[in-house]
Design a protein around this nucleic acid. Structure first.
Lengths: 85, 85
DNA sequence: CGTGTAAGGAATTCTGACACG
DNA sequence: CGTGTAAGGAATTCTGACACG
């Protein structure tokens, strides 16, 4: 696993990097769009891949998509990918 | 700059990853062997490269080297590198 | 010298809820 | 639905110092 996938960034820093509010980041998790890990104390840890994903999600939201639509789109993409025929 | 060099990891997590105590990590900084960044609030942030460097430092310490010796070794290596002749 | 620890304070994060639209 | 916010608590980190060897 590359550095890109290691979950090591706190939510506050992710907020800084992405420009998204902490509230939004937590909400996208609630909607099952993002899956941070937790430290022993319970604090969320994100990877750089998660950061990129959050930016992607935010763009879709800005385009007027709802979270379940974003989730559905992914499911679709995943299916296309695993069943190339 | 690659993900390896982004300073985003808190000292607690670095401690977990490296197995070094927080005290040791701060001490190596005091001795100018490692240079974390600081968040607005003042908390230290390390990169994956820093994590690897800390492990390297710890190995040298275990071998009985003193911090200034480790520092001197690096200076030597840097000189050899910048002046190949 | 390198490292542990107790001390007091400050910054960070967490959850569940109420609000609005 | 998506997001802000105040609330109270818990986890994290910070510094300077004393201790030991």
């Amino acid at each position: 696993m590359s550095y890109r996938d290691k979950k090591v960034i706190s939510i506050g820093l992710v907020s800084e990097i992405t420009g998204l509010s902490v509230r939004k980041i937590r909400y996208y998790e609630e909607r099952k769009l993002i899956f941070p890990e937790r430290s022993k104390g319970g604090t969320r840890k994100y990877s750089f891949a998660d950061v990129e994903r959050l930016i992607d999600i935010a763009n879709h939201i800005e385009d007027g998509l709802q979270t379940y639509e974003i989730k559905r789109m992914e499911a679709k993409r995943l299916r296309a990918q695993t069943q190339p025929l």
